[in-house]
Nucleic acid binder design. Structure first.
Lengths: 343, 343
DNA sequence: ATGAAAGCGCTAACAA
DNA sequence: TTGTTAGCGCTTTCAT
């Protein structure tokens, strides 16, 4: 067993030349003899030489690692974001370190700390819902580690931000329902905290107003988790009232799926009696019965964009140039299926 | 702007003491004066000192990074595996570097190469379907980087392996269908290449044999992608024959969902006319109509186990101790829903 | 074209 | 308890 990995020194000694010469050869520097270079390459190959990046990192103070913190990996949106990040990072020769906060602020802190110890060159983060204080991120920036925020952003952070146009997505979704002739549209939303959910609510409301539809306060259901269960029970409540909606726009797909379940149980038809619209276009949206119309977010593209931005910032930071922080708003798109269009 | 990050040297100079003293203080070594220690900590705090891990890594030849390569992140099974890996790694103070091969052998090679340059301490890998040669992994092992294989394994690799008992899972699934009184059970499988799919087929066959049921060759459908479309068309073919099955066991959940779609279109009842069973218990299994019975794999647990194993091997490698490679077979569990049980 | 020397930031061995 | 010295593996001056 080779006790230690091969070093430049080993090659230099065996060839009877100096270490810098070996280094020059392997790095294809101009100032090295053709003959020497050849010999070095051959021996390196033979000994399975692998450069020791630790030393190079120490010299360059650069790891070529991007840290990524997201709330949960097992989530259609985020796994696509990550997929975009990884594929793009690969193209630009960066590695991606991944951490999930599980929606815990403490865990997010720990992630930042771990990453800081791993000497990441930059951080892409989607905040946990429980994060209000962003000092840990500001601290990172002070240590010359750029931060790019994605989706779950925070106004207190001065950084590049990538969000998707939840407002417009919700507006168009509502508009679509209106175009079907629906007049009594309900909305199932979450607690107002997460920025994205709030935007969806706003978009919904604006569309109603622009098209001069009545806003029924009873048709607004707030639920905690925007989960399938919440969608189910909220819809049952909606359907138990005197006046029931002819369409439901749900702030998330799971909620919409719960709504579908409730509507079907009540013996009502979708979309004839009640049309249903979700948000995020989860993979499951296409397999429910009826298939769910939804608002698709440019998840993969957002990840890709985040990598572009962070690498650019890493570069600028390195050159000590000023960085202009912008917020990038990416467009959503309507995915129309049977839950609104019918067969 | 702080041009450079704070070093031990900066603290030492400002305090008029030596660098090692600062190091000792910050590392809570015993041989350091209480007073000095206090002063060092205070100044370090004030200057926002962050240790430079590059230097420590160079010294220790250790990165505390685990590399993970999987075919695709956007996949229910793998995202859960990764979730298990990350959460467990966090507990043990390791960072996780992630790469997806997108089922390409070349991409997998590139991932290994990138990771090697990032000086990972160990690799957890689930092979791409197109990987037959494993020299890239053997090469890693030769450079003292342990490798643990998960799910998609290769018999040529001498390494720890974690798989789940696809054979038994399929056996129990089939047994369940038999227990419902079903006698003409079809199986939709994939091309035999991936080990896991083959095992599922074997388990299915064994159950039929053990329970002395007829094996109808016509009821075996092989399809390329085990996708929803393939499941749909395969089932349509099945249903167009003279004799049709009274149950279908599908090698994957998407296939099963395609099968459900086809059966419903034909006006047959599930499970009364035809019961349907999937494999992997994707998130979508619970939202289709009727909810799909499936075989759940211990994905999260597999990820967790992989971290345990790799860190143990990293330790043993470091101490130059011999490693005994074992294959861990994790149990699946039946998740029974309406597609077999009825309402 | 090549070698000698210095240094990236930190820690460990040895002295004092 | 503290300082001095050396070294992790590599690259980059500066000489030659």
């Amino acid at each position: 067993m080779s006790k230690h990995n091969i070093r430049l020194k080993d090659i230099a000694e065996e060839l009877g030349i100096s270490i810098p010469s070996v280094s020059r050869a392997l790095n294809n520097k101009p100032d090295i003899g053709k003959e020497t270079k050849k010999k070095v390459f051959e021996l390196a190959e033979k000994l399975h030489y692998q450069r020791n990046q630790f030393a190079i990192n120490l010299k360059n103070q650069k790891s070529f690692i991007i840290g990524v913190i997201i709330p949960q990996i097992v989530h259609h949106f985020f796994s696509n974001v990550i997929s975009g990040i990884i594929n793009e990072a690969e193209k630009l020769s960066y590695s991606v370190m991944l951490y999930q906060s599980n929606e815990s602020y403490e865990s997010e802190l720990k992630g930042v700390d771990t990453f800081q110890r791993s000497m990441i060159d930059g951080l892409i983060i989607s905040l946990s819902d429980n994060t209000i204080n962003v000092d840990h991120l500001k601290n990172l920036q002070e240590h010359n580690v750029p931060v790019v925020m994605i989706d779950k952003v925070n106004p207190e952070m001065e950084s590049a931000k990538i969000i998707c146009d939840d407002y417009k997505g919700a507006y168009y979704a509502t508009e679509h329902l209106i175009s079907l002739g629906k007049k009594k549209i309900a909305h199932i939303t979450g607690l107002a905290d997460p920025y994205t959910i709030k935007e969806r609510y706003k978009g919904f409301e604006s569309a109603l107003r622009d098209y001069k539809l009545t806003f029924y306060p009873n048709f607004m259901k707030k639920c905690n988790l925007v989960s399938r269960e919440d969608g189910y029970t909220s819809t049952l409540t909606l359907l138990s009232e005197n006046e029931i909606p002819d369409a439901i726009f749900c702030a998330t797909d799971p909620t919409a799926i719960g709504a579908i379940q409730a509507i079907k149980e009540k013996g009502l038809r979708i979309p004839e009696d009640i049309a249903v619209m979700g948000f995020s276009d989860w993979k499951m949206a296409s397999v429910v019965d009826p298939p769910l119309s939804s608002v698709a977010q440019p998840d993969y593209e957002m990840g890709k964009k985040a990598v572009e931005l962070i690498i650019n910032e890493i570069q600028l930071t390195r050159e000590n140039k000023p960085i202009k922080y912008e917020t990038y708003i990416m467009e959503t798109s309507l995915i129309l299926r049977e839950s609104t269009l019918g067969k």
